[in-house]
Write a protein that binds this DNA or RNA. Structure first.
Lengths: 139, 139
DNA sequence: TGATTTAGTTCGAGAGGCTGACTACTTTAA
DNA sequence: TTAAAGTAGTCAGCCTCTCGAACTAAATCA
């Protein structure tokens, strides 16, 4: 079985479930919005940096940030360090969604650990983190 | 680091590279088309089954199969077992793309194994395959 | 046989993504 | 110190993928 598909299937499971949990808690976010939102730094992040981190063009990132801003999840403030730029910052509303997402993630991890056993779950995590070193262009 | 993102990053790497390799070899396939094509059985697969396997609605599957058919990667033949149904079958042209995709997959796996070591790469595979038992709705 | 289910299609709409071209500001270098 | 080059972000237009609703045709069940 192809390694891409092996990664794809559980990844989709996580994405679907976290999104469903966040939506069920009353946060009206889409998958794409969530992906961008996840990358916003506590101190604020420039649009261009956000676009890079989320692997989309700055136009796409701008489009999604517009939606997030309209819905009250982020705000844009001038960047004191550069007059051309603005910093995207998460609002209190967005922060409220974080524990909801984390709770679902914890639930998923617990289920997986129950199925794989503690040892194998640890190995999975370790291998994926190590793999990030060569596959994640942003860290 | 969140398990969803840990899975997402290498998955994207695989998808991008395999698609790029296939495109570079002259096969004009998109990601979505490739995902459907990958699920077509050697003996032929019904549209509905394809839709389920690829986790999309039958409208979407039909749309993608139309494109694949126009481009000559699949053909539709009547299903002898059911007058309503047709079987989607891959053509010789599609089969030519398989070794290209497999070669790139092998290259990726080799790189990963070089980075993780043989032991950890084996553990990753094993854990993901075991995980498929509870996350893959189609096997 | 008539009613219900199933396989697949058509239509219309929306989300998400891209390229190219632009404005406004900053940095660099002559 | 000012002209040139670079960078942050926006605007406009387009394409692909995806879905829901409603439909046709064939199969199956009562």
């Amino acid at each position: 079985m192809n390694i891409g598909l092996l990664l794809f299937i559980p990844n989709r499971e996580v994405e679907n479930r976290v999104l469903a949990a966040v939506n069920a808690a009353g946060f009206d976010l889409t998958q794409a919005q969530q992906r961008v939102l996840m990358r916003v730094d506590p101190g604020g992040t420039r649009l261009t940096a956000l676009a890079e981190a989320a692997q989309v063009t700055k136009q796409t990132a701008g489009f999604l940030v517009d939606q997030l801003e309209k819905a009250g999840y982020v705000e844009r403030v001038p960047d004191p360090a550069d007059g051309r730029a603005r910093l995207v910052r998460v609002t209190a509303k967005a922060l409220e969604a974080v524990p909801v997402a984390n709770a679902e993630l914890a639930r998923i991890e617990a289920e997986w650990e129950r199925h794989l056993g503690r040892r194998r779950m640890g190995q999975l995590r370790e291998a994926l983190e190590k793999l990030g070193e060569i596959t994640d262009p942003y860290r």
